[in-house]
Simulated scan of single mutants.
Amino acid sequence: MAKNPAEETKEEAKPEPKETLDVTKIEPKFKHPTIFQHFDALNPGESFIIDNDHDPKPLYYELLAERGNIFTWEYLQKGPEWYKVLIAKNPAEKQTAKGAIPEKDVKKAELLKEKGVKFGCSDSGSNSAKSDDFDEWELDELADYIVEKHHQYIKDNAEALNGLAIKVSEHHGTDHPELHRVATQTHHFLQDLLDHIANEEGVLFPVIKQGLAKRRNPEEKTTYEVGTLDLPIRVLLKDHEIANEDLNLIRRITHNFTPPKNACNSFSFLYGKLKEFEADLNEHFRLENDYLFPKALELDRQLTEV
């Protein structure tokens, strides 16, 4: 006998989340352990919501690495000031089946765990791996890590940060005219940075992977001339210098990202996000300047001797 629509709707309805957890009120070192406790306390099919002031994507990968593909992750709100995520434990019958998590994310979580990446939240919202590990990483792993962590951070935050700078400038620029300069400088800085990472992903990183494949198998063909990586890498290093100069100017205009005492929440949040963005970019450039680029140049030199 066919079920009536009311019965189907009742069966398919999801239970209400057990609670909402405001992560901003938890001391940074206890944030992820507390969230894990709440997740582990869920019965299959149950869920809870977390509220945070930055994208909790590192938590997503830690949960995936430590608990496996047994949950769903749904953004209910995605910035610019607040992120709200619904985390649900899969029903019992789906615990051993493939969940809704993309396979590429499962593999990434496994790689990050294998490499000893620290997932935990810091005050800036940025996370880093042990620096002494990077010399041991293969070039393709390091390039992928930079793209998936730091390039993705830029892509996830650039539009919202630009919009926030414009919004704060429009609302408070009369009393704080420096905000107009902050908005203009932020716009150009972010646009140049997006062009920069597009160049890396579209040109340099694929070339590096070609060189690595050729080192592993000399029969492999390359679409670039071996021994010519020095020029494009020098161009990218110059981009890094310009980006740092732009950020230093923004830092000076904002008095080291210090809002005035009477600043509203949006005003203070803008300066906090600029500071967070700077912290992530510093780590991003450090990985490329100190590890990826030198290792790529050494690989290119080796290939000229084959």
Rank of each mutant, 00 (worst) to 15 (best):
A109Y: 00
A65R: 08
Q152M: 04
L142D: 01
L76G: 12
S126V: 10
G211C: 01
F48E: 00
Y271I: 02
Q302E: 13
T184D: 14
L212V: 08
F267E: 02
Y145S: 00
P44R: 07
E298G: 09
L76Q: 15
L164A: 04
I253G: 05
E12I: 10
K238W: 14
D123I: 08
P17D: 08
K18G: 07
A92M: 12
F269I: 05
E225N: 12
E81D: 14
P232W: 09
I233R: 06
A165V: 01
T184M: 08
T186V: 05
A129P: 04
D300A: 05
E74K: 15
K155A: 09
I154Q: 03
G211I: 01
L193Y: 03
D300E: 13
D22A: 10
D55W: 07
S266F: 05
L164W: 01
K57W: 09
E159L: 13
P17N: 11
R181P: 00
I146L: 01
A6L: 15
P58K: 06
V203H: 11
E200F: 02
H38T: 00
R234C: 09
T20H: 09
N256F: 11
V23M: 08
E136L: 12
I101V: 14
S47D: 05
A213D: 12
E288Q: 11
L212G: 00
Q77H: 15
K57S: 05
L194W: 03
E81L: 14
N248A: 11
Q191F: 09
D290R: 12
D192H: 12
A213F: 03
K221D: 08
E103F: 13
A296R: 02
E138R: 09
